[in-house]
Simulated scan of single mutants.
Amino acid sequence: MIELSKEEYANVLPLLKNLAYEPVFAYSVIDQNQSGKVFVDSSVNPTCSLIINSYGQYFLARSGDNERFMNDVVGFLLNDQNHSNYYDLYASTPELLFQISERLAGKTVLLHRSSFTFDLSKFQHLKTLNALPEQFVLERMDDTLFDKYKNEMDSSYDSLWSSAQQFMDRGFGYCVLKDDHFASICNSFFVGRGYADLDIVTVEEYRNQGLASLTGTAFIKHCLNHNLVPNYNCDAGNQRSIQLATKLGFVKNNNYPMLWWHQDQSIISDYLQRFNYSNHSIE
């Protein structure tokens, strides 16, 4: 595989046309909003590419056959030293993903994601949201809140955004606080090619109060004010997330497959059980 320089990242964009969903995590690398690497079979007119970001999400695209490149991809994926502790592998077509799956020596599980399309008219006609409860405040994420969120809620944001300043420059988010503690948060997971992925988290004790809708709505309004298209996807079995997407004005587009590897088998088993996957074995 050939690793492109950052100045060459856009050379792979023709391989990302007419996809069934928007791989914003790959766009974020190409646009250099978030860190990653781009591998190809040819620097100038690539027919195959593997785009990886520092968070562990990989995208494989191909417009022609190149057995040598595919062998290199399989070798890369089979080497645990190339990954932190997990990876998600997506592909430009289901057929390509299944071809790779057959060559991964039983190391991955097959998952299904649901993608959504944002419908502005549905968002504009949403039912009136619940008022913010007393003692709760809605704020835009700043550098202090970002560091607080990363330290208290999700340390993986270290891999998503290299610093609070990078998040402020390239990303954004909104949160509901109570007594200076997070209740619900909607951050930009990835930003690229004019799209922004939503990452919504609500602390368990504050669920079922409409807080996720409030932070999600603030996020979407920010997108609309900054010429960004909000983008939503989730596990196909996550009914709570699907309901929230619908409530925020998204329309389900389709389901698509992905492969997941994690070094901790118990995490895989718990996830498969949580989202009702009937086959709990490694594919």
Rank of each mutant, 00 (worst) to 15 (best):
H125R: 12
C175N: 02
W161R: 01
C48S: 10
V229W: 00
S188E: 02
N231A: 01
S84I: 06
S213E: 11
Q166K: 14
D147I: 03
F182K: 04
R140Q: 11
S84R: 13
E204G: 03
G56P: 09
S278E: 13
H280A: 14
L16F: 08
K178V: 12
I200Q: 01
V74P: 05
F25C: 02
P46G: 05
S155H: 13
G171M: 04
L78R: 12
E95R: 12
F172G: 00
N53D: 13
K107T: 08
D264F: 03
P46K: 11
Q57T: 07
E139K: 09
G237V: 07
F76D: 05
F39Q: 08
D41P: 14
K221Y: 08
W161V: 11
E204C: 05
I2C: 01
L77P: 01
S266T: 09
N238W: 04
K6D: 04
V44Q: 08
Y9I: 08
N82I: 15
V73L: 10
D119R: 06
F118P: 00
A236G: 01
N225L: 14
R240V: 09
K6Q: 14
S156A: 12
V201D: 04
H125K: 14
D179M: 12
E139R: 14
V12L: 03
Q263R: 15
E95C: 08
S28V: 01
T202N: 00
Y90C: 08
I52G: 07
H112Q: 11
V73R: 05
N33I: 05
L97I: 05
N253I: 02
S84K: 15
F123M: 03
A91L: 13
L126M: 15
V29E: 05
Q209L: 13
E152C: 12
K178T: 11
T128P: 10
V201Q: 03
H83L: 10
L89Q: 05
G192H: 02
P257Y: 08
S241W: 01
L97P: 07
K37T: 13
E22P: 00
H280I: 08
A245P: 00
F25P: 02
E95D: 11
